[in-house]
Design a protein around this nucleic acid. Structure first.
Length: 135
DNA sequence: GCCAACGTTGGC
DNA sequence: GCCAACGTTGGC
């Protein structure tokens, strides 16, 4: 199993909305690196859901329920989406500051490559953030 | 093929 | 609101 982190501005698409809808298509990715990561996702992979800009914190865990297929919001055939379902909300949301202050998490793309919206995590990194989230 | 100009993202 | 980072576009 692989581990990922996706970012969304809560104004654009929030964790709460994902919970309300029960599932979503992760559409609109228009960056090659992010797309390549989407293509690597397998059913059952775990995905941390990060709220950028106004909140800057990891709020929940989702899982991949459908592997990549063409993005219906694009005419071009080159962009893809996956389907995600919410799994659980973190008891304590994990802020960007907490992540920055955690030595084990100093190498993740969230910090190193702040504009990437879909990124892989190592299992240890995923586990560490979840641990912080459980307080 | 290079690179300046421009647009977008996202932290501060 | 500002601006750094960085991806994309288009002129040459």
């Amino acid at each position: 199993m692989n581990y990922w982190l996706v970012k969304s501005e809560p104004n654009a698409y929030s964790w709460q909305k994902l919970v309300d809808e029960g599932k979503t298509i992760w559409e609109g990715v228009r960056n090659y690196q992010a797309r390549n990561n989407l293509k690597e996702m397998k059913v059952g992979d775990k995905v941390l859901f990060y709220h950028s800009v106004s909140e800057k914190k990891v709020v929940g865990i989702a899982k991949v329920t459908k592997e990549h297929f063409p993005d219906p919001t694009s005419d071009k055939n080159i962009w893809v989406v996956v389907e995600l379902k919410p799994e659980s909300e973190l008891k304590n949301h994990v802020s960007l500051n907490q992540i920055k202050n955690e030595k084990k998490l100093s190498e993740i793309a969230l910090i190193k490559q702040s504009r990437l919206s879909v990124m892989p995590l190592k299992k240890e990194e995923f586990d560490e953030i979840v641990k912080l989230g459980q307080g």
